[in-house]
Simulated assay, not measured.
Amino acid sequence: MEEILTYEDAYQELVQIAQDIENESVSVDVLAVKVKRASDLITFCQTKLKSTEAEVNKIIAQMEGSSGR
C-alpha cells in the first residue's frame, strides 16, 4: 500500500533530516540516502505549494468574477 504524504509530514521529515545531519548523527554510509530523501521531499513540498497557490488563485478569481455580476 502506498503511503499518502502530506505537506506537514514531509516538512517534519525534512526538519528531522536536517537536525540529524547538523548533529552529525547520520553515518557517512547513510548520508547520501538522507540527502536524496531530502531532495525528494523538497520537490514534493514545492509542488504542493505551487498547486495550492494555483488553486487558491483560481478560487479568488472565481469569487471576484461572481461578485462583479
Rank of each mutant, 00 (worst) to 15 (best):
M1V: 06
M1Q: 05
E2P: 06
E2R: 06
E3R: 15
E3H: 15
I4C: 00
L5M: 09
Y7H: 08
Y7D: 06
E8A: 13
E8C: 05
A10V: 04
A10F: 05
Y11Q: 04
Y11P: 00
Y11M: 01
Y11K: 03
Q12F: 14
Q12P: 00
E13T: 13
E13V: 10
E13P: 07
E13M: 13
E13Q: 14
L14W: 00
V15H: 04
V15W: 02
Q16A: 05
I17S: 03
I17K: 03
I17H: 04
A18D: 09
A18K: 07
Q19S: 05
D20W: 03
D20V: 00
D20I: 00
D20F: 03
I21M: 07
E22N: 05
E22A: 08
N23V: 05
E24M: 06
E24I: 03
E24Q: 09
E24A: 08
V26T: 03
S27Q: 07
V28H: 01
V28T: 11
V28L: 11
V28N: 07
D29H: 11
V30H: 02
V30W: 01
V30D: 05
V30N: 06
V30A: 06
L31Y: 12
L31N: 01
A32W: 05
A32P: 04
K34S: 02
V35L: 13
V35R: 08
K36A: 15
K36V: 11
R37C: 10
R37M: 13
A38W: 07
S39M: 14
S39I: 12
D40R: 08
L41Y: 02
L41P: 01
I42K: 13
I42Q: 14
T43W: 09
T43K: 12
T43R: 11
F44D: 02
C45N: 02
C45Y: 01
C45G: 01
Q46S: 15
T47F: 12
T47P: 02
K48F: 12
L49G: 03
L49N: 08
L49Q: 10
L49D: 08
K50G: 04
K50Y: 11
K50F: 15
K50I: 12
K50Q: 13
K50T: 09
S51E: 15
S51H: 13
T52Y: 05
E53P: 00
E53W: 12
E53H: 09
A54K: 14
E55S: 13
E55I: 04
V56Q: 08
V56D: 05
V56N: 09
N57G: 01
N57T: 01
K58H: 14
K58M: 09
I59P: 00
I60E: 02
I60N: 02
I60Y: 04
A61I: 01
Q62K: 10
M63F: 10
E64G: 05
G65R: 09
G65Q: 09
S66C: 10
S66H: 13
S66Y: 14
S67K: 11
G68I: 07
R69G: 15
